[in-house]
Nucleic acid binder design. Structure first.
Lengths: 117, 117
DNA sequence: TGACAATGGGCACCTAGGTGCCCATAATCT
DNA sequence: AGATTATGGGCACCTAGGTGCCCATTGTCA
């Protein structure tokens, strides 16, 4: 669905929120598969669904500056035995956008159609 | 199955032979998925089988010095839109081993159990 | 020659990142 | 309010690299 510029859709809020949670645990970077697993455990079985959608969302969010990414070095020893990952990191813009979205969600006067009593 | 040291098994011969064919076409490097596809088109449908077996074979062959490998740079523009690959290259040892194996296969006097007429 | 041990194949499954198409919905325009 | 259009979700599928277990076969040794 079309969206008003500057607003976040649920999957984006979920991603930003997960990223902030990880950040608070000291993990500055995360990768798509990791998020996919968390989303899987969260809403049980819609994992197949999530994968494609998720990577598209991550890509979009990087395009729009909410996230930045780098590939991990495939020749690094801790990549042994699995394919290399693309590591994402929350940008200042991303953090701000998330905070704004929660603010809007919390303050009724910012909701569409609000009227003073 | 156990094997006599220094001999090649069929999948290894297939890999070396494919590598040499590519080399003759000017392609010095190849990756596992590429071989997998060729093997797939060759013997129709045993692809699922091949994949696991193939990567194990490639790994073994690198360990024993018949092949060398490097990861392609994931941030290179031509990796856009797909996971990075591990690129293999035939070593001098690999080439020699292949030639030796075809020599043995061609010359009956080198076959086990050979007796002069 | 028969027992033993090493090796690799088959198979199922995992890890990781992605595209393309169709369609529902929402934002916008008239 | 109704028509139009942009956007993203659902789904199926592709690309790429890998592991673990079991079992059949083979080389070697007694």
């Amino acid at each position: 669905m079309r969206r008003k510029p500057g607003t976040l859709i649920p999957i984006e809020i979920a991603i930003l929120s997960a990223a902030l949670a990880l950040l608070n645990r000291g993990e500055e970077e995360f990768h798509g598969y990791q998020l996919a697993r968390e989303i899987k455990t969260a809403n049980s079985d819609r994992f197949r669904m999530a994968a494609g959608t998720l990577y598209k969302a991550l890509n979009r969010m990087e395009q729009s500056g909410l996230l930045s990414s780098r590939w991990e070095d495939p020749s690094s020893p801790d990549v042994e035995g699995r394919p290399p990952r693309r590591l994402y990191r929350l940008t200042a813009d991303g953090e701000a956008a998330y905070k704004e979205s929660t603010r809007v969600a919390t303050d009724p006067s910012l909701q569409a159609g609000w009227q003073p009593l």
